[in-house]
């Protein structure tokens, strides 16, 4: 299948998600379950995407574990996104030098 079609579907769906509520909805969502669900879904998605995929993201388990550990510690202490992302890469890179 043409990659252009994939990209069009991807961009189209993403835009519709943003524009429909922004342009047309004026009321608030009342359902407590739905509101809670929508609140939790981003965390659930990011968590499911990250684990266990992060362990395979460098092509070598030891460097990935080192990077993950660095990210976990810095993220736990609330460091900015960019610091956590760079430190995770750096830790994986440095570990790779010793293998």
């Amino acid at each position: 299948m043409s990659i252009a079609i994939y990209i069009a579907v991807m961009a189209g769906v993403t835009y519709l998600i943003r524009v429909i509520p922004f342009a047309f909805f004026r009321k608030k969502i009342k359902s407590k379950f739905l509101r809670s669900f929508l609140y939790y879904i981003p965390y659930a998605v990011l968590s499911a995407m990250t684990l266990p995929a992060i362990l395979y993201s460098t092509g070598s388990m030891p460097t990935a574990i080192a990077g993950t550990a660095a990210a976990l510690v810095l993220a736990y202490f609330g460091c900015p996104l960019i610091v956590v992302a760079l430190a995770a890469s750096l830790a994986a890179f440095l570990t790779g030098l010793f293998l």
Binding site: I54, T68, A71, A75, V83, A88, S89
Partner: peptide, 17 residues
């Protein structure tokens, strides 16, 4: 390969705090 971790590192930084 080390930079492949960056996106996931950012995801952890979003969900952990």
């Amino acid at each position: 390969s080390a930079m492949g971790l960056m996106l996931y590192g950012m995801f952890l930084a979003i969900i952990l705090p």
